[in-house]
Design a protein around this nucleic acid. Structure first.
Lengths: 335, 335
DNA sequence: TGACAATGAGCAAACGTTTGTCTTACAAAC
DNA sequence: GTTTGTAAGACAAACGTTTGCTCATTGTCA
């Protein structure tokens, strides 16, 4: 923490620019000097100061990841993907939890820009925030992850929700179910719009009528799924299969069904969305549509890094990269 | 990203030191000038450069959190606690995943030191690494979280494992169980030593003999718990209650019991350790000993920040702070 | 042998702040 | 009218690097 490049220069009896060159393996120093410098650096327990370097190079080797809540089982895998890919490329990752607070999204953004991160990944609370769309220009490479506002001018990576919805529904249909329900959180909070679209497309494609009694929108909490299905069963009007807007909801539905004395998938089949880790636990064993979460995180980092390189070279802002990943069908025990 | 303090100074027609003072609400500038400067800063979309500030102040407003795997359900809550507390104090948090790789622990440490973080929280893979004990001195405030090496010279915060083990075992005893087993991962990888100690203390205290047939050490994966209990049941020699070294193991055990056609807690009662989020899901409903994970994260940050303040003031290194938090008994359906 | 390139090294200017010291002006106090 | 105090602001030195430029010195080639 103490020794600087100047200390090394002094004890080596050379200029500190040469020390810098020696340490960074740049040419302009003899092999002999290089060795000597490195040896002295070792002895002095020299640790390069990335802050100073960052100042002159205008690069900090840092990325920012803003997400709603690392405690939500959907995010840890994403964070891991991001961190891993970033680390591979020599970047450190700032973790920022907004706690589903829109205003925090903005303040973290400012905060990260002050810290001069080289790029920012934002997994927004809602896709309906156009907070960032209004800015003329991000001063740093920027990419949305997941909940992307429609027609954004920035880069994004997300899962093909329409295709996912279609896949889920088609699977139920092919298993022979006809009375199929859709239970979800509300549209405005999420890209579920696409999932519902996929649902409708599949039903249409197979010429099955949609029964509005089986379509319900609550919120995104487990209890919502639990309540809705119980209410349906209680009223005696319930589908033989349900596609849940996400896995948390699906788990609530599972629980609700069981507590009503019915069984899954015999009485009601269930399929979820996301494939959060819970889904694979034996006691739950939920069929679902997997979002490639780790891949999403990695792709986001790749976008940032590519943008960094091109931007530096060309000097001009390049077009936004848009990545839409395919979801996978994960068949387990609930349908 | 473009405008600097000098740009402001130029358009305001004053020296840039005055701009700095105006912006930071220091005295030495008239109210009038201050207003003017702030207005210009606004117009120029000035964003302070934290890197430059960090260089002169020798403080970056950054903490590092090194942990094995954010995907492991034990860590997200810790990370959240850390991030929240750090953010409250104006610090950003670097997330570093070692992927259970000891060498990465060290390289991340070096990495963070180069980045000149103001403090480091390390949740080690194993408590048996004395990699860091050998260093004469950490160049930055440092605290262990969780898996702390014995007799460390650094600060740490952990849960009282002995007490937790005692609590779990006493609970089983008070519920009337006598033939009690302990299934865990191996000692050398974790502080489970304490948990086993607590187990033995409780058994001793209530004068119950420990049956070695019921004590088993595998690894820390779910499958280990699953295999061990199935093997026990298969052999016809199994306890009426088992204390599992952690919740993951407990869930494997739960699964194993059910697949053998036995029921919980009627045939075998189970209690775990950690209280990972899974444990509270209705379908699992595991009784367990809760580690106050969020609290642990927050305490670690508090230690760092206090050390930061005292160190700056006194100029001398202060004593390590040692925090041992009490675990809580969480009674659910499995015992 | 002379011209020229390549090499090793030093000098100094950046990077964008904060902060200690110095100057000036003006008002209050004697 | 001189001293003293105070406030506003300017000046310049840091912080620890990287990097463009210059300058010898050496080696190469015709």
């Amino acid at each position: 923490m103490k020794a600087t490049i100047k200390d090394i220069a002094r004890t080596a009896g050379i200029s500190y620019s040469s020390v810098s060159r020696a340490l960074n393996d740049l040419k302009g120093v003899s092999e002999q000097t290089r060795q000597k410098v490195k040896k002295i650096a070792e002895e002095l327990e020299y640790t390069p100061n990335a802050v100073a370097r960052g100042l002159v190079q205008k690069q900090t080797g840092t990325l920012g990841l803003i997400l709603p809540d690392i405690t939500n089982p959907f995010y840890p895998e994403i964070a891991r993907g991001v961190e891993e890919q970033a680390s591979l490329a020599g970047f450190n990752t700032f973790l920022c939890n907004t706690n589903y607070d829109l205003s925090k999204e903005e303040s973290y953004l400012r905060n990260l820009i002050e810290k001069r991160v080289d790029g920012i990944i934002l997994a927004p609370v809602s896709s309906h925030s156009n907070l960032f769309e209004q800015r003329k220009h991000m001063p740093v490479p920027f990419v949305y992850l997941g909940n992307t506002p429609e027609r954004t001018k920035y880069s994004f990576v997300l899962t093909d929700n329409v295709r996912g919805g279609y896949l889920a529904t088609r699977t139920l249909i092919e298993k022979g179910y006809r009375r199929i329900g859709f239970i979800s959180g509300k549209d405005e909070e999420s890209p579920v719009g696409g999932r519902f679209t996929g649902f409708k497309e599949a039903m249409d494609r197979y010429d099955i009528d949609i029964n509005d009694d089986y379509i319900r929108f609550g919120n995104w909490r487990l209890k919502s799924g639990y309540d809705i299905i119980q209410q349906m069963i209680g009223a005696g009007i319930y589908p033989e299969a349900v596609f849940a807007g996400n896995d948390i909801l699906a788990m609530g539905i599972l629980q609700g069904i069981k507590e009503k004395g019915l069984s899954v998938p015999e009485d009601i089949a269930v399929i979820g969305f996301d494939d959060i880790p819970y889904a694979s636990w034996p006691a739950i064993n939920l069929s679902t549509i997997r979002q490639p979460k780790s891949r999403m995180g990695k792709s986001a980092v790749e976008i940032l890094i590519e943008q960094l390189q091109t931007e530096n070279r060309g000097g001009t802002m390049l077009k936004a990269t848009k990545i839409i990943l395919d979801p996978d069908l994960i068949l387990r025990g609930t349908c």
